[in-house]
Design a protein around this nucleic acid. Structure first.
Length: 571
RNA sequence: CGGAGUGUAGCGCAGCUUGGUAGCGCAUCUGGUUUGGGACCAGAGGGCCGAAGGUUCGAAUCCUUUCACUCCGACCA
């Protein structure tokens, strides 16, 4: 491709709307264009990258026996009503009506559609297992679209669904997909971790998220440097610190004037914040709930929702003015003693702690030397903490580390959730009718593109890994009016094209500086500069990921390009 | 949905406090000079100043309403 003919419009300045590197650089490089908030289009260069990523995904999915299909984005409400999600999914689902007032939605995910296809076409165990996938546009009406491709309302996703006879089959399918995902993200050049995750709204029992490490990621993960433990913080099970052998003291009410926060109380009484417990007040499905955890801890709302077995949106902060009169709690001084008409949850860590300090449910008073069972109890006692840096790894006890990351893929074991609600059954070899056991597996294709840029850029622009680069080589023709240079550049261009190298020739009537800046911004991995030394058949060879420029004979530059590209592809 | 901010040419911005009919840089087009890290000279085109209403002789500027966009939070794969 000749640059003079290509539709690429780069920007010199940072667009006002963009904040993080992937968003800024993709816009500046003219690879994406925004239509409205959270909706982007892909320009020629950007589209090529998307296709590269998709090709990698296809190869790895096919290698595991996946079969590609393509389903509609427009979905009838009936299927969602059948699965029960029409009423559960909430405002994130784009809903619309046709001219006859029938309800539809734009698919945010495709469990219903795939289950529907399979139940109509699969009757026998002989037809299983099946693994179907598609690469298709998804719609989610995000509360807050953000960071360009990172969280958008329209995005491209690879979603696949496995259908097995039994749990064992599902385990195999899951394992296959897990390995496929490792291959895919590795080939895309991402540094990532597969972490245990919470199963969230889609439902299911077992799930891993593939998280590309990035400071601009929206999820937080905890991992162990010593063993293979890695989990999202919302999922990570915490090891309780043991309270020690201190002598159990008599309970005592003490005046703590104006001490509303844990820090103030601990300070005032001269104890560690670890010696205190705090109350968090919620309304769960309309009922009041008090949660007690150690004063220095943070509550993990995902664990709370799971412990209460309620949908996530049914949990809200309690209004203290409303709650106070009913449960007898006092804002800033809430403790476990004397609470009424209120469910009490206690974090398991408090069980072994000795002589705790808590609010007295009386203005300006706290209670010292509270001990679990002797003085207070809970309706539910379980792990409700948010893991923090330095906590013990649940597998081996080593202090854990934390990272932020971008969730680029997720694998789920769905089990029979959808096959039962939607009646997707098969007959086994004993003529027994059984629900198909399902798994689902997603990759955010457009988000992966953003994640790659987050991990591969410098102050001058993007640095595409060979495997996903829109082109592999850019020939920078320094002076288009110099016939020697022009002829040499043309011949290299033709030669590389003949060898099926994806090459772009920058033959624009621009000054060299402009061409260099654009080449850097666009992130083409290899640059061959044809300048004054063209008369001697010498060109300059430069890898985008490295700084140095070397002078090479034309043939050497070509063969080195080919070598670097084939190395890059096989990685 | 709460909090903050911004809407003026394709992009980045000034003008608004103190109303007088819109400007700068980049980009675009024409001509010329230039050609190894975002050139220079001369000229040109492009905006009912987010929208609606109001105040006024007169509104980008003041007032009201509304819409959009961005950030923080809530929520979410």
């Amino acid at each position: 491709m000749k640059m003079s003919k290509m539709h690429v419009h780069t920007l010199r300045e940072v667009p006002n709307e963009a904040e993080i590197p992937s968003h800024i650089l993709l816009l500046r490089a003219g690879m994406i264009r925004k239509l409205v908030s959270g909706v982007y289009g892909f320009m020629p260069m950007g589209n090529r990258i998307l296709k590269k990523i998709q090709e990698i995904i296809r190869e790895e999915m096919d290698a595991k026996g996946g079969q590609e299909i393509l389903m509609s984005a427009l979905q009838p409400a009936e299927l969602w009503q059948e699965s029960g999600r029409w009423n559960v999914y909430g405002p994130e689902l784009f809903r619309l009506k046709d001219r006859n007032d029938r309800s539809f939605c734009l698919g945010p995910t495709h469990e219903e559609i795939f289950t529907d296809i399979i139940r109509n076409e699969v009757n026998s165990y002989r037809q299983l297992p099946i693994n179907l996938y598609q690469i298709q546009t998804k719609y989610r009406d995000e509360a807050r679209p953000r960071f360009g491709l990172m969280r958008s309302r329209e995005f491209i996703m690879k979603d696949s669904y496995s259908f097995d006879q039994d749990q064992e089959g599902l385990d195999r399918s899951y394992e296959d997909m897990y390995h496929a995902y490792e291959n895919i993200f590795t080939r895309c050049g991402l540094v990532f971790r597969a972490v245990e995750a919470d199963s969230g709204a889609i439902g299911g029992t077992n799930t891993h998220e593939f998280t590309a490490i990035s400071e601009h990621g929206e999820s937080e993960i905890a991992y162990c440097g010593n063993c293979d433990f890695a989990a999202t913080t919302e999922r990570a099970e915490c090891i309780d610190e043991i309270g020690g052998e201190a002598e159990v003291l008599e309970m005592e009410m003490v005046e703590t004037p104006g001490c509303k926060t844990i820090l103030q109380v601990a300070d005032f009484l001269g104890v560690s914040t670890k010696q205190t417990m705090k109350a968090l007040l919620y309304k769960a499905d309309g009922k009041f709930v008090a949660v007690f955890i150690r004063g220095d801890r943070e509550l993990n709302e995902t664990k709370l929702v799971n412990a209460l077995n309620i949908p996530e949106h049914a949990l809200e902060f309690a209004d203290e003015s409303e709650m106070g009169p009913i449960t007898k709690c006092v804002a800033g001084y809430t403790g476990p003693l004397g609470l009424e008409k209120c469910m009490i949850l206690v974090d398991s860590e408090l069980v072994t702690m000795k002589n705790l300090v808590a609010g007295a449910n009386k203005e300006n008073y706290h209670i010292k030397n509270l001990n679990f069972k002797r003085d207070f109890d809970g309706d539910i006692i379980t792990d409700l903490k948010l893991m923090k840096e330095g906590d013990a790894c649940p597998n081996c006890g080593t202090p854990v580390k934390m990272n932020r990351g971008i969730e680029v893929g997720q694998v789920f074991k769905l089990g029979t959730k959808y096959s039962e609600s939607m009646k997707a059954y098969f007959k086994d070899e004993n003529m027994q009718e059984k629900p198909i056991v399902m798994g689902c597996y997603g990759i955010g294709v457009t988000r992966t593109m953003a994640a790659i840029v987050e991990q591969h850029h410098d102050e001058n622009g993007i640095i595409w890994p060979i495997a996903v680069a829109p082109y592999h080589v850019i020939i920078t023709l320094v002076n288009i009016n110099d016939d020697t240079q022009k002829e040499l550049a043309d011949s290299i261009y033709n030669e590389l094209n003949k060898m099926r190298v994806e090459v772009v020739l920058d033959d624009r009537d621009e000054r060299p500086g402009v061409k260099f800046k654009d080449a850097d911004l666009l992130g083409i991995p290899i640059r061959i500069t044809v300048g004054k030394k063209a008369v001697e058949g010498i060109v300059e060879f430069n890898e985008r990921s490295k700084g140095e420029k070397i002078e090479l004979k034309t043939e050497e530059a070509i063969s080195m390009s080919v070598e670097i590209i084939s190395n890059g592809k096989s990685k």
